[in-house]
């Protein structure tokens, strides 16, 4: 039942992308997303496409896994395309019927918006597929480190994320078990109207919350018994350290960003591109 939902879509493989420091990948994803909103011309998109294609090739993750993430936004994608297609005013009307018309500008915007959304999803998928949730947490903790000076509880936030990652599968399984136990007592989670359905969740949610609190209590005690006392004075078993490949990756990323900006700036002068 509930167990079938897959969490943390990490795809284990041995690629340079998997080995990169998570901070690099976080920054790269951010840069890539920003770049998508910088480009306005076909040439810009060609640059972005080449970059994405290169990264996907390097990741050694089957392309089908990348596309999987798109299923979730298919509705959003369609709506965006339809709106842009029909509601963008333009110079040349290509097709026109009833009150709607498709203009060259509309076609262009719709296509760009669709590509942007798709690239955005695929781009972030590349990151989550090549980075373990642990590394991601570590990367965020270290990457956001400077915020500690502003009294942002960075370590605590990362610890919360790490614990959530550990316990989500356990609580999922527990939900499944309690659901079955209540079904064995004649509970019905499927039929009925919205109010009845909400009510039928009480026998599931109350035990689940109680169990979550009990686990939290136990875990806090176990952590204390193992000398956990916050981030201060803590060392790391797997500290994040930049290696030469990480700097190279930053270099490539810089080049990409320069190329995108160049295309954008030049585009203002040369109408051709």
């Amino acid at each position: 039942m509930i167990k079938d939902i897959t969490l943390g879509q990490y795809y284990p493989a041995d690629s340079i992308l998997h080995k990169l420091d998570p901070r690099v990948k976080l920054v790269a994803t951010l840069v890539f997303i920003v770049s998508l909103f910088l480009v306005k011309t076909w040439v810009g998109y060609v640059v972005a496409t080449l970059f994405l294609a290169l990264v996907i090739r390097m990741s050694r993750v089957p392309f089908s896994f990348m596309v999987r993430g798109l299923k979730a936004i298919i509705m959003l994608l369609m709506i965006t395309v339809v709106f842009n297609l029909f509601l963008t005013p333009g110079n040349r009307v290509l097709v026109s019927f009833w009150k709607f018309q498709i203009t060259d500008e509309g076609l262009r915007t719709a296509a760009f918006m669709a590509v942007r959304l798709i690239y955005l999803i695929i781009g972030s998928s590349v990151m989550t597929l090549t980075t373990t949730p642990n590394d991601l947490t570590d990367g965020m903790e270290k990457g956001l480190g400077p915020l500690k000076k502003l009294h942002v509880p960075v370590h605590e936030m990362a610890m919360i994320m790490a614990i959530a990652l550990r316990f989500i599968p356990i609580l999922m399984e527990e939900t499944d078990k309690i659901m079955k136990a209540q079904m064995a007592r004649g509970a019905d989670f499927e039929t009925g109207n919205l109010v009845q359905k909400a009510k039928s969740l009480v026998p599931l949610l109350v035990p689940l919350f109680i169990s979550a609190f009990r686990r939290a209590n136990d875990l806090a005690m176990a952590m204390e018994a193992r000398c956990y006392h916050g981030g201060e004075g803590r060392t790391k078993m797997k500290p994040l350290r930049y290696e030469s490949r990480d700097f190279k990756a930053y270099g490539v990323l810089g080049l990409y960003l320069c190329a995108v900006i160049a295309v954008r700036v030049l585009g203002n002068y040369v109408r051709l591109i």
Partner: peptide, 23 residues
Amino acid sequence: FQYPEHQLFEVDVLSDVCFGPLN
């Protein structure tokens, strides 16, 4: 089920045991 006490949810014992018959 195993560890069936994990399914208890009502405010008092009697109501909890009533859950099955009411269903």
